[in-house]
Design a protein around this nucleic acid. Sequence first.
DNA 1: TCTGGGGTCCTAGGACCC
DNA 2: TCTGGGGTCCTAGGACCC
Length: 434
Amino acid sequence: MDVRGDAGSTQEIPGILHLDMDAFFASIEVRDDPGLQGLPVVVGGAGARGVVAAASYPARTRGIRSAMPMASARRLAPDLVVVPPRIDHYRRISDHVMGVLGDVVADIEQISVDEAFLDVRGARRLFGTPEQIADLLRRRIREELGLPSSVGGSVSRAVAKIASARAKPDGMLIVPAAGTAEFLAPLPVSVVSGIGPKAQEALARIGVRTIGQLREIPRSTLTRALGPRAPEVLALADGSDRTGLGHRARDKSLGTERTWDEDLTDPTAVRRSITQMADDVARQLRRGGFVTRTVVLKLRASDGTTITRSSTLDHPTSSGERLREQVVALWERERSAMRRVRLAGVRASNLEPAAGTPVQSELNARSAGWQDLEAAMDRALDRFGSRSLERGSTLPAAADAPQRRGSELPSSPAGEATGQPTGGGPRTRDHDGR
DNA sequence: TCTGGGGTCCTAGGACCC
DNA sequence: TCTGGGGTCCTAGGACCC
């Protein structure tokens, strides 16, 4: 892929930015409670099997990282402050952040609550160079929300993301087109999104630890180690990658799961729990304006082995009753082999828009949570163009309704998507969002 | 006191059809 | 009385991301 027909004379602009909020959940909690300033703070589950969802920078200097078991984090910092997640709160702040980005840049791809890609090549005339735009965005987020963020910039999306990580905390790093390969060469391959522990192992076996070393490996060797991703990773390494913004496809699945602090040994308790989950998933489907064709039961045994069992329906549904039947039938087939259950989950995949016109299902989605509302707006924008929905007056007004509606549903303070395992077994912490 | 919860994407085998 | 090749759907598992 080449850059657009950009009248050959102009220099190639590193106009793909990646903006990432710094320690998002933890930064919010510290902002809201200044007494936490300077302390090792983590957001996450406090239970026996809790993990860290986000760690403040003082916590990070002690070696604490997200996804770390909470017990390990406590060992590293006995004075650790553990704050339970407030997902709805974070989501509202996320909406505000994305609103700021949308004020300045038309072309945005939000990829999670706390990060987004921006193509600023069209905003130059109005707002200046990528550096100036990044500055403006970070300043506005700091002023309006009191939160730190970092920005990376490049000619490619993958490199912009790597750059933002190098810019943290509270910094900016724009990589010029010509300096891309040089910038990447010394970095470990693990910085590339998509190169996880397994791929790193495979690369280490052929002597590759840095991105620079990737380029010296014969293509065929690299392909054996990485599989079909090899060409893409190679393009990254030599600076020729030009991937721009993607566009978020509509939701493909949705579900809920739960890990118990102590394994469940009573099959009836498991059954009760998964029927509640099925109801909850059905409710999420209806709120989102979806029906599902495939119901998946996920089970993890005490030794960590995980299985999934699915069944596909003749007719798509969003009925809790139907989901419960399916999920219970799947459980009945496995229960004798699953004496101790650590985790159970229910997921609906093969989603389709609920009956009615597409527009109708978009309207249904309005009664869902903020995220769904946003997804619905994204789809509307895709379909009708960016003028179809105005920011400013329309957004907050539309956003008010689901907020009120949402608040009457959950029975637990922190809860929302997880539904209400009322009266049932031990209620674990309500997850997180990272 | 080993490892959460929400997802996406990919692969591979088997069934089934033409 | 043996057997190709292509395509699609379903199921299951695994790697990976935030």
